[in-house]
Design a protein around this nucleic acid. Structure first.
Lengths: 391, 391
DNA sequence: GTTATTTGTTTATTGATTAAACTAAGTATA
DNA sequence: TATACTTAGTTTAATCAATAAACAAATAAC
C-alpha cells in the first residue's frame, strides 16, 4: 500500500515539472509555476534536481514581456535511448529512439525461418547494431521492448504465437541475460496502441482502441490513458469476435470470427477467386496496384473488407464508446478504400449518440507503431520511479 | 493538475486509515499501523480526526496477546445514509442504505405508466418515504442515486430510454431541486456493476464485467476497480454486439444484435411458438415453473438462450480477458439452466488461456444490484473528498 | 533616468510524518 | 507476590518539502 509522506510529495511534483517541460518545451521556471500551480520556489528546486540528473537543460534566455528575461528549459531527450522491436512473422523491424520517441536508427531484417534459435540470433544481431549508437549518453540504452505477434502473459512470457509456431517462449529472460538491461515483451497490437497513444495519432485521447489489421486482427485498449492488459495479459483479441454465430470455423476454436472476414488473410484468400488477378502473385501490394489502376473487382473486394471492418468496429464502439479508434498495421495502407465503407456501415448500424464524440483515424506511423510503442515501454519503465499520479 | 503538498499527504493517509477500518473492523490503532505501514503516531492522529468527524468510533478493548489491551475501532456506518433507486420499465425499487450498503428500508412500487410526470411523482413519493427514516444521524441522507434503463451522458442527463419512451430527460436536475442533495443518474447496468463490485460478487475482482440480462442486455465494465463509462458515458452496450452479420434487424439500427437472441424479450418471443405453453400467460416466472415441472420444450429453450448467452460472453472474454463475469438482472433467475450451456459454449469457443483466470458468477443481490450500486454512487460522492489514491 | 514588470532566489514559517522515548496496561513465570 | 517481558498508544523532537513573502536581478515602457 502506497502511503503518503514528503518523499511522495516530491515525486509527484517532480513528475509534474518534468512532464510540463516535456510537453511545453522550451519553457521557463515562471511558466511552469503558472501552468502547474506549484510555487516558484518549488519549481526552482525541482528543476535544479532535474538538471543534476541531466534530464533537463537550460537553453538560453527567452523574450521578455516587460521584465527580466526568462531562462528557457528543455527536456534533454538524448540523456538516454531505448530500443523497440517489432517482431513480425517474417520480418524484424528494430528502432533506436531517444527518450521522446524520435527514431535515431533503424534496422530491418527479413526472416526466412521462424525457429526460435534463428529468430533469436537475428534479433540479437539487430539489437547489437543499434546498441552501439546509443552509448555516449548519461543513461545509455535504458531498456529493450519487443512487440510479438501472439499472446503474452503479464510477466512477458510468450504463451502462444500461432504464426511463429511458438509456445511458452521466454524471450524476455533470454534478452535480459544477454544485455543485462530491463526488457519488456508485449503483444504487437498492445505495443502499437501504446505507440500511437504516447507519440502518435492518439496523443490527445484518453480512451482509445487501436486495431492492428494484419494477417489477423488484434487490438490494444487504452483506458484512462493507460494500456489495459486484462487479468492475465491477453485482452484485445477482438479479431475473434463472433460476427457470424454459425460462420466459418476459426483455428481459435470459435466460429465466424471477425478476422476471417476482414484481415489481410481474408483479403488474400478472397482475392484468389477473382478472375482479373488470376495469374498474378497476389499480395497486398499487388492488389493495391490493381486498385490504383481501377480494377473494379479488386475495388469491390476492398469495399467488402471495409464493410466487415465496419461491423467489427460497431461492436467495439458499442462496447467501449471510445474517443478514438486508430486502424493500424498492414491494412492501414488501404485507408482510402476502407474509410468510406466503414463510415457507411457505422452510420447504418450505430446509434447517433456515439457518433459525435468519435474519431476514426489511421495510424500515424504506419508500420512503425509497434516498434515505437515497444521502445516507449522501456522509456516508461526507466521513468517509472519519477512518474506518479494522484486520483 | 493535482500537485502534492502536506494537505494531500494527509488526505491519502486518512483515506488509507478509513479504508483499513472499513474493511477490517474491528481493528486497533496498532494493527492499522502494521497493515498500512503508517507510523503509530500518524495512525493515532488520523483516527482522532476521523472520530471527531464521527466516522469512526471506539467499541471497547480487544484481547491482549501478552501486553496492553488494544482499543478496538469500527467504522460508524450509520453516520449517514444513502438512497438508491432502480427505476425499471414497470417498477420502482428504492432502498435506503447505511454507509456500508446495508439495506435499512425498502420501497417497491409498480408503475402503470411511463410518462415522466407519473414516474417523477411516484419516484418522489418513494424517496420521501425513505428520507424520513434516515434523518437522525450526523450526515443525514448524503445523496440519491438512480439507475435507469437507458443511456445517460456524463452529466446524468437521460439521453434515450427506449422502453420508457424518454428522450433528453433531466431527472438529475429535478431531484436536486426537489431535495437539495447530490444526485447521481446512471445507466442501470453500470449501477448494477458498481453494486456488485462494491458490495457483492465482484468485491475481490479488479477487472470485471457485469451483464444485466433483462428485457435487453446491457453491461457495466469495471476496469482497475473503477467503472468505465466511455467518453460520453455510453459504454457497455454489448447487447448490440453483432453476432449474426445479416441477422434480424434491431431497432438500434444494427442487425443480428446479441440481445435479439439472448434476453428476456428473446426468451418470451421464442416461447410463443412452443406448443406446450400455448394457452398460458407466458412470463419469465411461468416458464420457470414449467421448467421446474420438467417441460422439456421449455428446458430446451432455456438451453438455446444459454448457448447464445455463451456466444456473447465469448466476445466479451476475448475483448476484456476479465477476472470475473457476473450475470445479473432478471435472467439470473435462470442460473441453473443457463450455467451449463454457457460453460459448454465457452469451452468450445474460447482459447484455454482465458479459462484459468476466469470466474463466472451470478448476481449476489438478484434484483437489488442496481439499487444498491446507485446508493453506492452517492456514498462515494460523499467520501470523494476523503478518498485519494496514488499510482 | 525613472517606474513598473517579470523572473528567479532567499528566508522564515508551516504542517505532516517519523523515530525514539515514554507511559499505560497487560501476560508469563518463578 | 515480585519480576521480566510484551504490546498499545501518546508525547517529543527532528526532518523535510511546500509555501508566502521579501528580495535581487534584469528588462521594457515612458
Amino acid at each position: 500500500m502506497q502511503t503518503g509522506d514528503h518523499v511522495l510529495v516530491k515525486k509527484i511534483n517532480k513528475s509534474i515539472v518534468l512532464q510540463t517541460i516535456q510537453s511545453s518545451s522550451p519553457i521557463s521556471r515562471a511558466q511552469i509555476s503558472k501552468e502547474s500551480g506549484l510555487n516558484k520556489a518549488t519549481v526552482s528546486a525541482l528543476v535544479s534536481d532535474l538538471m543534476e540528473e541531466n534530464l533537463v537543460q537550460e537553453i538560453g534566455t527567452g523574450l521578455s514581456s516587460g521584465g527580466r528575461k526568462p531562462v528557457m528549459l528543455y527536456f534533454n531527450q538524448t540523456a538516454g535511448y531505448s530500443i523497440g522491436v517489432d517482431l513480425g512473422v517474417n520480418y524484424i523491424l528494430a528502432v533506436l529512439t531517444d527518450l521522446q520517441g524520435n527514431i535515431v536508427e533503424k534496422v530491418e531484417e527479413h526472416l526466412e525461418e521462424t525457429s526460435t534459435s534463428f529468430v533469436f540470433s537475428k534479433l540479437t544481431q539487430a539489437i547489437h547494431t543499434l546498441m552501439e549508437k546509443g552509448e555516449e549518453s548519461t543513461y545509455g540504452v535504458v531498456g529493450i521492448g519487443v512487440g510479438v505477434p501472439g499472446i503474452t502473459d503479464k510477466d512477458g512470457m510468450i504463451l502462444f504465437a500461432p504464426n511463429l509456431h511458438w509456445e511458452q517462449v521466454d524471450l524476455k529472460g533470454f534478452l535480459e541475460q544477454e544485455y543485462n538491461i530491463p526488457v519488456v515483451i508485449e503483444n504487437e497490437a498492445k505495443a502499437g496502441a501504446h505507440g500511437e497513444k504516447i507519440y502518435g495519432a492518439g496523443k490527445e485521447s484518453s480512451d482509445l482502441i487501436y486495431i492492428s489489421m494484419g494477417i489477423g486482427i488484434g487490438a490494444g485498449i487504452i483506458i484512462n490513458d493507460k494500456l489495459y492488459k486484462g487479468v492475465s495479459g491477453i485482452s484485445g483479441e477482438m479479431g475473434h469476435f463472433t460476427i457470424e454465430a454459425n460462420g466459418k470455423k476459426c483455428r481459435c476454436g470459435n466460429k465466424g470470427c471477425w478476422e476471417l472476414y476482414s484481415s489481410e488473410s481474408a483479403l488474400l484468400e478472397q482475392a484468389q477467386s477473382l478472375s482479373s488477378v488470376k495469374d498474378m502473385d497476389i499480395t497486398l501490394e499487388s492488389l493495391i496496384e490493381e486498385a490504383e489502376k481501377g480494377n473494379t473487382e479488386v475495388i469491390n473486394l476492398f469495399n467488402r473488407i471495409g464493410e466487415y471492418a465496419g461491423i467489427g468496429l460497431t461492436n467495439i464502439i458499442n462496447t467501449f464508446n471510445p474517443e478514438q479508434i486508430i486502424i493500424g498495421n498492414r491494412l492501414s495502407k488501404l485507408q482510402k478504400w476502407l474509410i468510406n465503407p466503414i463510415q457507411h456501415v457505422l452510420e447504418q448500424r450505430l446509434l447517433s449518440y456515439y457518433y459525435n464524440s468519435l474519431t476514426i483515424s489511421f495510424s500515424h506511423f504506419g508500420i512503425h507503431s509497434c516498434a515505437l510503442g515497444s521502445a516507449a515501454f522501456s522509456v516508461e519503465a526507466f521513468f517509472s520511479e519519477n512518474k506518479v499520479t494522484v486520483s
